[in-house]
């Protein structure tokens, strides 16, 4: 499935990110191929979220480049990166709590719309047409994530699992090429996690590539086409899930060495 000639959507080239004396990520390189569900895993503090934040423009790396669809996006601001086609969700859900679910998803389409100040004040014909379209797309997306009935409910009032789906729906509303999910299953129960896996698998029918940070091995093994493992800021293994799962280095990173335990 991962033949080498497939189109590379995202590539990081030797990115290094230091916070003061701490090197969170050191010359990390990896590729995400079109249409794949790609997982980035690793123990706590491995630097996964830092990689995500570099890709989505929240951090600027000290060294290295991030290539998306053939152009270097390193140094762009987060909102410009969204416009290029990378949408993300957060580990600790970040919705707009006092806006309705529908408005949350409408906000996700911000970078795909153009109406500015004057057309909004005077409600020009084009602005009204655009607004109608935003509304329709938002309703479709809300239906897709199964939250149509909460359309007018404030985002802060719906259940945690639903909030997570709403956040994914909001990210999808910007019609991304690459969807970046930071621990989508954290805080979900087993049933919700199963629903999530099914949902993400269904997303492949859209022209979409997905990159996930995940702790839950059931999720990783269940949906990934390709897994990249990080430890202490560097890549230690990559490959199809089965291969990675049995890799001694990965097991060591997660569970520790056997001799190590003898020291206690």
């Amino acid at each position: 499935m991962n033949s080498n000639d497939r189109y590379v959507v995202l590539e990081t080239c030797d990115i290094t990110k230091r916070f003061g004396g701490l090197t969170a990520v050191s010359s990390f390189s990896f590729q995400v191929k079109k249409g794949d569900i790609n997982s980035l895993i690793g123990p706590n503090g491995a630097g996964k979220t830092t990689v995500f934040n570099v890709i989505t423009g929240i951090y600027r790396p000290q060294e290295g480049q991030v290539i998306f669809n053939g152009s270097n996006i390193e140094g762009l601001k987060p909102h410009q990166i969204v416009a290029k086609g990378i949408a993300r969700t957060f580990q600790n859900i970040r919705l707009f709590p006092n806006m309705t679910c529908l408005e949350n998803i409408m906000a996700g389409q911000h970078c795909r719309a153009r109406s500015g100040l004057w057309s909004s004040v005077f409600r020009t014909k084009r602005q009204r047409a655009e607004e109608k379209q935003i509304h329709e797309v938002a309703e479709t997306r809300l239906k897709q994530v199964g939250l149509s009935r909460y359309s007018n409910e404030l985002a802060k009032n719906i259940a945690y699992g639903n909030q997570r789906m709403l956040e994914i729906g909001r990210a999808l509303a910007s019609n991304p090429h690459l969807l970046v999910l930071d621990e989508p299953s954290s805080g979900l129960n087993d049933a919700e996690t199963r629903d999530l896996i099914g949902f993400l698998k269904d997303l492949r029918h859209e022209d979409l590539t997905i990159l996930i940070i995940e702790h839950d091995m059931n999720v990783v093994m269940g949906i990934s086409d390709w897994v990249t493992v990080m430890d202490e800021g560097a890549k230690i293994a990559e490959g199809p899930p089965e291969t990675v799962y049995n890799n001694p280095q990965v097991i060591e990173a997660y569970l520790g060495k056997e001799e190590y335990e003898d020291d206690f």
């Binding site: 989505t56 909102h79 919705l95 911000h110 109406s115 655009e130």
Partner: peptide
């Protein structure tokens, strides 16, 4: 009132609600 129900008004409210999420949703904060 027109602004409140427009892309501009929504963007403003998003910034009030969560600046980081607003930026991550393509709003030029």
């Amino acid at each position: 009132m027109s602004l409140q129900h427009s892309r501009v008004g929504r963007a403003w409210n998003c910034i009030r609600e969560d600046e980081i999420a607003a930026e991550a949703n393509g709003i030029d904060v």
